[in-house]
């Protein structure tokens, strides 16, 4: 297994270079003018301003020149400066990635726990009303558009009942605690600010529920199928015959084995959510990487586009690797096959 991990880690930089090259070239050859976010559309006819902007932002060289410069800078840890925010892309990503990760981790928790519970109920009470209800709940999460769900949730919980706060990571009027990790829950605790921690937690509830519900369907489906398969195995019948309790059979004997095939989907769902949370981020004004990616693409902000792609690519590669490791840890046959 160790060999596999090392081999994967060695190949990773080359895969990333491939991703960088493809993204760089696609962005360069995409129709449109990136100067709009720098000087505005009205100045595109002003030769003097256009020339100055091109020189300043390194857009005056040929594509191979720009590619060589980009890769050289990248090798030195410089992802360039965003045309739009005028900040180093690395700074932009460092500001946004923790926000997205915090949201995605909570959403994954909601999605995974909710999905697994629904799958257990669904499998144990197959073809009953509980099964249909559990599947309907999971299906609705997958089918309902997240932007609609987000708006409805905001309307119900912030406008009508005022039970939960509106968009953002913290009360807008409050001053955020000093950034240490970028994770608001952690930073508020580190600052010893309990009320800010509670506030941050309250702000997380709605977006995490909406995003988590959206991935609950696929998790339920996978785990349910796996559970049904496992529940039909002889060793489960044996455990039941030996008098093991219903809950013990379900959790200890069945779920532990049924989760192995679901690990793959959990890994990829997590990676998908990192870049796929854009609609929830937009509705809940969550300053994460999803909305950053969309804004970068809209304005043809080349350095930001490539930066986000690197992070997304890295996320997928790491999720893949971690899934394999988790798979091996859960299934001894995989370790031996390593």
């Amino acid at each position: 297994m160790l060999k596999v991990v090392l081999r994967r880690l060695l190949v990773m930089p080359f895969l990333l270079l491939g991703i960088v090259t493809a993204t760089f070239l696609l962005a360069q050859f995409t129709k449109g003018n990136p100067l709009i976010s720098i000087i505005g559309a009205r100045n595109l006819d002003n030769a003097e301003i256009v020339a100055a902007a091109k020189a300043r932002w390194g857009l005056d060289g040929s594509v191979p020149e720009r590619y060589a410069t980009y890769v050289w800078n990248l090798a030195h840890g410089d992802l360039g400066t965003s045309f739009r925010t005028k900040q180093p892309v690395l700074t932009d990503l460092a500001q946004r990635l923790p926000a997205t990760l915090e949201l995605v981790i909570c959403a994954m928790f909601v999605g995974a726990v909710g999905g697994i519970v629904l799958a257990i109920v669904s499998a144990e009470f197959k073809d009953s009303f509980a099964d249909h209800l559990a599947r309907l709940v999971a299906l609705l999460g997958s089918c309902l558009p997240v932007f609609w769900l987000g708006l409805i949730a905001l309307f119900l919980f912030t406008v009508q009942t005022k039970l939960l706060p509106g968009p953002g990571r913290l009360d807008i009027r409050a001053v955020a605690p000093p950034t240490v990790t970028g994770f608001m829950l952690v930073d508020t605790l580190l600052a010893g600010n309990w009320s800010a921690f509670v506030d941050a937690l309250r702000h997380l509830i709605l977006p995490a529920l909406v995003l988590g519900w959206s991935v609950m369907g696929i998790i339920t489906r996978m785990v349910r199928a796996s559970m049904l398969d496992v529940l039909g195995q002889d060793y489960i019948t044996m455990a039941r015959a030996k008098g093991a309790g219903r809950l013990r059979v379900l959790i200890h004997h069945a779920l532990a084995n049924a989760l192995i095939p679901a690990l793959t989907i959990l890994g990829f769902t997590f990676a998908y959510l990192i870049t796929g949370s854009v609609l929830v981020e937009t509705i809940f004004s969550w300053p994460g990487i999803g909305s950053y990616a969309v804004d970068a693409a809209r304005s043809l902000d080349y350095p930001a586009i490539t930066g986000v792609t690197i992070i997304g690519g890295l996320g997928f590669l790491l999720a893949n690797l971690l899934t394999d490791i988790a798979y091996a840890a859960a299934d001894p046959r995989m370790r031996e096959a390593g």
Binding site: L154, V159, G166, P167, G168, T282, I283, S285, P287
Partner: peptide, 15 residues
């Protein structure tokens, strides 16, 4: 406060 969506803006005003 960055709020991209007009409906969200209205909801923030209401709340």
């Amino acid at each position: 406060k960055q709020t991209a969506d007009a409906v969200t803006q209205a909801q923030m005003l209401q709340s």
